[in-house]
Design a protein around this nucleic acid. Structure first.
Lengths: 334, 334
DNA sequence: CTGTTAGCGCGTTCAG
DNA sequence: CTGAACGCGCTAACAG
């Protein structure tokens, strides 16, 4: 009983016109007599006509479905980013096709291949590597990078000032009297981590303190030994404060501290980069570098839309400002 | 410099064969001499050939992109659901096209229209209304409902035993000695809320207590006055325990309690339906009815895959069991 | 303003 | 095993 879907030709025949006329009437462009158009619209509606997007895309050689790939759909940071993108695209009558790549280069590449296959007009991504973005650019597809920049080829981007954010976080700790400040960061080539590290160093040297490499720990994503290495850090280096460079690491660190029954901030202070809801709910609440996440998504979408309008327009890299939200997890040195 | 994408014909010409042969070689089905196939694969790779999905879909009259629509991409419950779906579909070599409808019927309908347009082979959804699912079913598209069931037409589904979950939560409170137990639920026609309400009633009447309607408050999604109405409830009814029928309401209720500096569970107990990460992190941690969210997504995908294999197979409705996780937010009556 | 014609890129006959 | 021919559904160009 899987009835054949209604085609444009069906609608045209039923309304007594040619397919071209029906096409013009339903797609809204091209001349067509008002009363004919009205009749066409009515019969299309009556028959339950749904245009075949594949045929349209094939003909026009482009679609209105823009590809979006983020690192982790379950992470609220990326979810908010996607929400900002989606809303903006929808307002411009584009569709978002959302994919998660789990920070995996192979998955990212396969997703990007699919976008190519679907003749997406452009792609917005939080890149996991440079290869996927470069591939797209080489194919002539507009790409906007969000959150971080990895492409070697030039493309539009929306990022946060990571160095400033990192510096603000660490300066805050220094002002409170801390000298043994640990940095938990992801082991990546991402500009986010590089910037936050730079901010960390800048804050320390700016205060005339030296950088102790043993206090900087880098973690592979989803590594099984993350917790163990945080515990090792606590045991061997006895930091009085921790700066976690992303919300995941902050969460892991927080769990470790709590399991050890360390009092925050009396025994140890904690600052996170990226402010997600739980940080305002736990006791004490976590001091964090907040990012305008939704806005970043919105801007990225706007950048893409602009380039779709005018492919030759100059390249833009927007750098937004983070904001330090001081809460209870940071306090004077014990 | 937007070079024309490489087509199958280009590959064929370059390799000195016909397009048909190239098609057979690259799609993997149909006879083709091993050495020719090898050559074809090599040139396709060299040229960077990416098949045009629109053309393929147009020809085959179906695609491998299954549509998935959930209520709220920002809610971790739905994110986990989507993750389970995505993983399972990918293993079966299908693509997930993920959409959020913000519990809005119009958005749901427009999303579903797009799936129809794209000739999706099937759709998985947490329905916001019955219209979208019914539309799909009427068009002959396999639909799987997850989390709740709304379609009037029959379709496969994966749900949780909401009544049992609700009963377990409320029985737990009753055992602790509570008699004034408030219920916070969404004002919907959803089976989830209906089931949880039924569980609430069953627990009360089962314990020989009567149901006080003033203790049951229904909230529209994203209503601006949610907080105010929770406060009103506290003021006028003075419940000793609250059962929040979803994670959003639990979060709102939690914020109200905290702002009022009510001690949990000494002044008031709180139980949530649906266990999300923050509930295990706040102090005290929240007692919750946990759902096997990822697994629900996985099962839904499996149901769809089975039906794609065999469209005539019998209808299946899977009912999974929730599990009450007892934590610190519930305690004896003050 | 409308209909005819042609072709987007692919997979599927069906001869050879 | 291979190639020629055709058509999926739609829209752009063109002639009327």
């Amino acid at each position: 009983m899987t009835a054949r879907p209604i085609t444009l030709a069906d609608v045209a025949r039923e309304a007594g016109t040619s397919a071209s006329t029906a096409s013009r009437a339903l797609s809204g462009r091209g001349y067509v007599a008002p009363h004919v158009k009205k009749r066409l619209l009515a019969t299309a509606d009556r028959l339950g006509y749904v245009p075949n997007l594949s045929a349209r895309t094939l003909k026009q050689r482009t679609s209105r479905v823009v590809g979006v790939v983020v690192s982790d759909l379950g992470n609220q940071f990326y979810a908010a980013l996607a929400a900002g993108i989606e809303q903006t695209l929808r307002e411009a009558n584009y569709q978002m096709l959302l994919l998660g790549d789990n920070s995996d280069v192979a998955q990212e590449l396969s997703g990007v291949r699919m976008f190519l296959s679907m003749r997406a007009p452009g792609v917005i991504m939080t890149p996991a590597s440079n290869t996927a973005a470069d591939l797209l650019v080489a194919r002539g597809l507009p790409v906007v990078e969000v959150d971080r920049r990895l492409a070697t080829s030039s493309c539009d981007a929306v990022v946060i000032d990571n160095e400033q954010g990192g510096r603000a976080a660490v300066e805050h700790l220094i002002q409170l009297g801390h000298t043994r400040i640990a940095l938990l960061m992801a082991r990546t080539t991402w500009t986010t981590d590089a910037g936050r590290l730079q901010g960390y160093r800048a804050a320390l040297t700016g205060a005339g303190m030296r950088v102790d490499r043993r206090l900087i720990v880098k973690f592979a994503t989803h590594a099984a030994d993350t917790v163990k290495r945080i515990e090792l850090l606590l045991d061997e280096q006895q930091p009085t404060a921790i700066f976690a460079a992303n919300n995941q690491l902050a969460e892991q660190a927080w769990h470790v501290l709590r399991r050890r029954k360390l009092s925050i901030p009396r025994d140890i202070s904690l600052v996170a980069f990226d402010d997600v809801p739980w940080m305002g709910m736990v006791q004490p609440a976590i001091t964090a570098v907040a990012q305008p996440t939704f806005e970043m998504g919105r801007r990225a979408a706007l950048l893409l839309l602009r380039r779709l309008e005018d492919p030759t327009c100059g390249r833009t890299v927007e750098v937004l400002e983070p904001r330090l939200v001081t809460r209870g997890s940071t306090g004077g040195k014990r």
